[in-house]
Amino acid sequence: MSFFCNSYPIVDKKALGEGIYSYTLKCPEVAENANIGQFVQIKAEGYMLRRPISICSVDKGNGTMRLVFEVRGKGTDKISELNKGDLMDVIAPLGNGFTVPAKKDGRVIVVGGGIGTPPLLDIAKLYGDKCTAILGFRSFDKIILDKDYAKTGANVIVCTDDGSTGVHGTVAQPLADELAKGDVAAVYACGPTPMLKAVVAAAKQAGVYSEVSLEQRMGCGVGACVVCACTVIRDGEEKVVRVCKDGPVFSGEEVVL
């Protein structure tokens, strides 16, 4: 595992929705070394702290990496001013990704909530029709990447809180239904903490291995400053670990949400 700190050319930029952007960088060295579920630290000109953003997808053949993020504040707003042809300064790839393929044979379920949907896309690519992607959004106008997921061949279930499209409600019911069908090797999730809690609980109940990707305010992003703490239970003992270097992906068995 190794990371780089460099400026890479932006070869594509798209707005996916209000305040949600997709950037593709030409960064062969990063693409070569990246694993599914890792993240990058993007420099926002004029700000001290880099912004941690999950890697959405990597094309090792083309040497490109796709990043999808939502403008949450001034830092991400500044980053979103970058255009095709500009350079993006990133430290990447960082952290530990998902354990894929899963250790067991079988199909997998990915559960993404809102801006938590991007980092799971390459799992769907890897598994194709052996993947069910359950994607939850607040309403129809907040839906992102549903077509990208469909292109992977995965079975896509879109849920909206207000019922404006797809399943009315959270990801909980479709997840329970999918788990009940059996033959699930693993569940992978990224999204708001209440969703992650529900996913981990449902997987546990079904006796299925799960992994979740966490979000936390970070300093360095490489493990040095121990700012981004979270708690895991290992060998029956509570342990405070770093989201950036020990995560951002943790097994549902050990993480305290």
Partner: peptide, 22 residues
Amino acid sequence: DGNIPPRIAETPSGILNSVGLQ
């Protein structure tokens, strides 16, 4: 084990931290 997160915030030309000696 240090303090409960969040432990960091951006400020104009700086940062605030409260790691708590983890």
